[in-house]
Amino acid sequence: MTSILVVLTAFGQGVAQPSKVHSSFKPGEVWTDTEGNHINAHGGGILFHDGTYYWFGEHKVEGKNGNKAMVGVSCYSSTDLYNWKNEGVALPVAAEGSGSDIEKGSVIERPKVIYNEKTKKFVMWFHLELKGQGYAAARTAVATSDKPTGPFTFIRSLRPHAGLWPKNATEAHKTVPIVVTDNDPKWEQKVAAGAYLQRDFEGGQMSRDMTLFVDDDGTAYHIASSEENRTLHISKLTDDYLGFTDDYVRIFPGGRNEAPAVFKKDGKYYMITSGLTGWAPNPARSAVSDDMMKGWKELGNPVRGTEDEQKTTFWSQSTFVLPIQGKKDSFIFMGDRWRPQNPIDGRYIWLPITFEEGKPVLRWQDEWKLDTSEKKQTKR
């Protein structure tokens, strides 16, 4: 029997929607869970474990507080990637007045979960901004659970690598101060040269938009936008995935990259990022390397389509690249269409990644299925 449920529109009004079984992806449309409610897992990432996909994301609410963490990190499960069951709140925020770093009203963004084969623990990292501080804290945070659906237990937040230079730091970074003054006409160049790397040396490096990647040998990496979002930092995590080793590097200094998403194909590491324009969409970027910790080369905008589509990445921002289980070299680009005026109504843009001349490529498809991901679909 078909049930009728309420889905919130961009204006917060209730519109009756029938729950249904999904058999394809329809990027940009309201994507309902198995109960008929709009999936609430923004800025998310996916873990595949024991035959099931788990989608973790930011639980948004209506109105002016919609982009603050009022509930926590949500979790959904699926075996086919089309139909998702709401598993509830995997990591709840702490109570108001508790003084916790993840107190209700803080900012929790881009949660990613990986599984540690040695400890048998599920480990979640996320970008955290402390309550009442806007985006000044620029911290990363970690939580763990014995089950993929949680509940996760918050461990700590931090700015990583306090008192440590990146492996590719120069002697000048360590010994020649770079001074940046107000209204400095060379501000961007000095930041790229390492001004904020030096500034944050003692207290730890900034960490905002982030993702995780586990390599074939089990090594886990934390990739984050640092230095006031001007430079990406790639860090090796400890064997238990609960902390940082001393091994980290800067890549694309001054490149203004956000929203990193990393995947591996044919022994090469690929990265898709966005530019730096706040909630507004911008042209995606892509890059490749033979080594996670060095040698990254830019490949340009992966989007193929109209000028508007290329300029806006189909009006979305990257959050994760999902390898499709059982389909060799098949990957899904996951992006978000942010709606900052009513964040709960944000939409999901999932598209297949194809390759041309060794470069990842994204093309718009109104509707597509896993078994037709490499075929041309209806063009918008």
Rank of each mutant, 00 (worst) to 15 (best):
E129S: 06
A259H: 09
I108T: 01
F56D: 02
S318T: 15
T52F: 06
N168D: 13
H161T: 04
L370R: 03
P281A: 04
T372R: 10
S289P: 09
Y248R: 01
Q13M: 13
M70H: 06
K60M: 11
Y221E: 03
D345E: 15
E29H: 08
T277A: 15
F25H: 00
V176R: 11
F314V: 06
R110Q: 08
Q17T: 14
T140Q: 05
G204S: 10
K190D: 12
D216L: 11
F314N: 03
L232S: 08
V176Q: 13
S225M: 00
Q310G: 13
V21M: 07
E171K: 11
F11I: 09
G99N: 05
M334E: 09
G36E: 12
R304A: 12
T2L: 15
W368Q: 09
S289G: 03
H233T: 13
K174R: 15
T372H: 10
K264W: 12
N37T: 09
I332C: 00
D80A: 12
T238L: 10
F331H: 07
H173P: 00
H161A: 11
V89P: 01
Y248H: 12
V191G: 06
G194E: 00
T238E: 12
M210P: 03
K327G: 07
G218L: 08
A138L: 02
D290E: 14
V180A: 05
R363K: 14
W368Y: 04
Y135S: 10
P177E: 06
A10F: 11
V15Y: 11
L81C: 09
W165Q: 08
V73S: 07
L299V: 10
Q205S: 08
I155C: 04
A136E: 15
I272P: 05
P177H: 11
S23C: 04
S207Q: 09
P323N: 06
H161I: 02
V123W: 01
G255N: 03
K328M: 05
I349A: 00
M292Q: 03
G150V: 02
W187L: 12
L128C: 02
V191L: 01
K327C: 05
T306D: 07
L212W: 04
F355H: 09
R256P: 02
F11C: 10
L237W: 02
K190M: 08
N40E: 08
M271I: 14
H233W: 08
G275F: 09
D291Y: 06
S235L: 01
R339A: 13
V123Q: 02
V7L: 13
F355D: 01
T79Y: 02
W165N: 11
R337K: 15
Y269E: 07
L362G: 04
R139H: 14
D80F: 04
N86F: 11
N282K: 12
G28Y: 07
V6F: 13
G28D: 09
T2G: 12
F25G: 00
A172P: 09
D239T: 12
G335C: 04
T372K: 15
